[in-house]
């Protein structure tokens, strides 16, 4: 198993689609789809996520990995499959700015890990608040690149509190990585630097909470 994880990680990081497909094809004959996700794909993405955090893996590699594995997992576990992880009820968005890459990566990585979540695209504080309310979202993942956008979380959090909504706000993006106090300043419940940390936070065993 360890060898397969290592091989898949290497092929994904070098964006070798043919080699990645060959490995996944081979293990598809040996493991059930839940085993493939939980025992192979999630550990690979966890290692790649840790590599991103410690600076040994580049953002482009994280993106290409997420995109490839999301597509593969969709093929074995289609959207709407009851075996997908629907809890907590989650959504993801880019708040007040237009830089979508971070959201796209986290969305892909979570879906490749079997989670199902809403993709709200670009939102403003007001439109996001309304969507959270309408969909009864338990956990909102918010990606921002620009500092002014990161600071807008404070307004969203105030609205949620005013309406007695206990939606958990998990933030991520460059401003939070450059100032590790910022997520607390804006009233977020947690900060995650990658999908692996989001999953740890959801499972109650990691991330900055």
């Amino acid at each position: 198993m360890e060898q397969t994880i290592d091989q898949l990680k290497k092929s994904l990081l070098s964006v070798d689609h043919a080699a990645s497909n060959e490995i996944l094809q081979r293990i598809s004959n040996e493991l059930t789809y839940t085993e493939i996700i939980d025992k192979i794909i999630m550990p690979v993405m966890d290692q790649i996520g840790l590599g991103w955090e410690d600076g040994t893996v580049a953002l482009s590699q994280v993106y290409m990995t997420g995109k490839f594995t999301e597509k593969f997992v969709d093929s074995i576990l289609p959207p709407g499959d009851p075996n997908r992880k629907h809890k907590p009820k989650m959504a993801i968005t880019v708040l007040e700015d237009y830089h979508m890459l971070g959201k796209r990566i986290i969305y892909s990585m979570l879906r490749a890990s079997g989670f199902e979540l809403y993709d709200y695209g670009h939102t403003t504080v007001n439109s996001l608040f309304q969507k959270i309310k309408d969909d009864d979202i338990n956990t909102i993942l918010i990606s921002t690149l620009m500092l002014p956008s990161a600071l807008k979380i404070k307004e969203l959090k105030a609205k949620l509190i005013a309406e007695n909504m206990n939606t958990r706000v998990i933030v991520g993006g460059a401003p939070y990585r450059f100032d590790n106090q910022l997520w607390k300043d804006v009233g977020a419940d947690a900060m995650a630097s990658g999908a692996n940390e989001v999953i740890s936070i959801i499972n109650g065993n990691g991330g900055q909470v």
């Binding site: 964006v15 482009s60 993106y63 290409m64 995109k67 830089h99 979508m100 890459l101 796209r104």
Partner: peptide, 11 residues
């Protein structure tokens, strides 16, 4: 072209 579109182009 946006970040993800550019990464797709590059690779």
């Amino acid at each position: 072209m946006g970040f993800s579109g550019y990464l797709d182009l590059l690779y």
